[in-house]
Design a protein around this nucleic acid. Structure first.
Lengths: 206, 206
DNA sequence: TTAATTTGGAAACGATCGTTCCCAAATATG
DNA sequence: CATATTTGGGAACGATCGTTTCCAAATTAA
């Protein structure tokens, strides 16, 4: 029996307490990894950005890849929460699809666009050589595709999207549009151009 | 007066002649850079793949970035030639757009898909921090977008694409579809799924 | 109080990075 | 022929990489 389990509060473990918040540090790491990519982001850059000494970093994480994977998971958690919030404000299925595409378009221009998407960056840089990274990328893509699929079906149920639209193939197309926007956003287009792509894509739901 | 200029043939320069073909070596470098990315591709890997000693490599190229940019330019030259060939076999404008999208879809699955696109990889990994790389990426993207635009207009002229289609915004959407397919192809989808995206995108030209 | 444990932070480690140097070989020029 | 020039190839360089080690500080448990 674990006497600590009687309390809902986690008992403070022995030893000197950590002086930084893991999630705050990961938020800084996300910026470095997104802008620079996995290989170009050095431990030196990471520790500076995260405000930690190398020793502290390696007590919190096994190695560089563990930092990266934790940052990836944190990134997905934050972005999923923001997307969920955006979708909750939506009306019918068609409106939710629009909001979702707009969500990606807004992340694909300006400073945010140049910072880049950690999922896309991971797919490009680590997708082939690292199984753990690839699995996370695939899970993320599959989730996005499934979400688009379900929103299209919701639109067909509420009448905002015609029955003639094929949910599966259309979801796959819209997924590739969102990933493509993220690529273009690294070097390129301004807000209006990103949003015009969304408007054009929505014609597939007419 | 340069007496050598009287001949159309390039006069062999003094010194020991190079024993390898630059373009053949670059074709090997393209594979390494595409699969691994710029930073993960080490000089050691590159020289092994290219079949050269480090010294020879640095006599042919100023530094690692010069190797990369030469490989990028070679990649674009080869891919553009293949695309041009594919388009020359096309019928009307609509068919040419289809062939162009299919050209990207075919490069976005299986071994070729996992190898990846050097333009997409460069945008992600170097787009923000290297001006020369960014300029090449932007030139490539702009060229592709302009080509799609012109093919759509061609289709409107020959009657295969409705006048209601807006060439500029549709070209931009199709560009982002092609870039997205390349991202998905790194970890994912099989041939049929890639081609189904193309079929769905073509509905925008109905 | 004492022992055990964990963190903070800096110094140090071996490995690998991109690059340069050096010398023998191969060619053009005089 | 000798000389200048360029390449091939490998050894060597300093810098930086990711990681480990070490010690003082902070905490829990006994």
């Amino acid at each position: 029996m674990n006497i600590n389990a009687t309390s809902g509060l986690a008992a403070r473990p022995p030893g000197r307490p950590r002086e930084f918040e893991i999630e705050e540090a990961l938020d800084k790491a996300i910026v470095v990894f997104s802008e620079r990519g996995y290989h170009a982001a050095s431990i030196s850059e990471l520790k500076d950005a995260m405000g930690l000494a190398a020793g502290s970093l390696y007590k919190a994480f096994k190695d560089k890849k563990a930092i990266f994977l934790a940052a990836f998971d944190r990134y997905k958690q934050v972005r999923n929460a923001l997307l969920e919030e955006e979708l909750a404000a939506g009306g019918n299925g068609r409106d939710k699809v629009f909001r979702m595409l707009r969500f990606y378009a807004e992340a694909s221009h300006g400073e945010h666009g140049r910072r880049g998407c950690l999922v896309v960056g991971t797919a490009i840089e680590l997708g082939v050589y690292d199984a753990e990274a690839a699995e996370r990328v695939n899970r993320s893509m599959a989730r996005t595709e499934a979400l688009l699929d379900s929103l299209i079906r919701e639109g067909q149920t509420d009448g905002s999207i015609p029955q003639a639209v094929d949910p599966a193939t259309t979801a796959r197309l819209l997924l590739s549009v969102t990933q493509g926007l993220r690529v273009l956003g690294k070097t390129g287009p301004d807000r209006d151009r990103a949003l015009s792509v969304v408007d054009t894509a929505m014609k597939l739901l007419d």
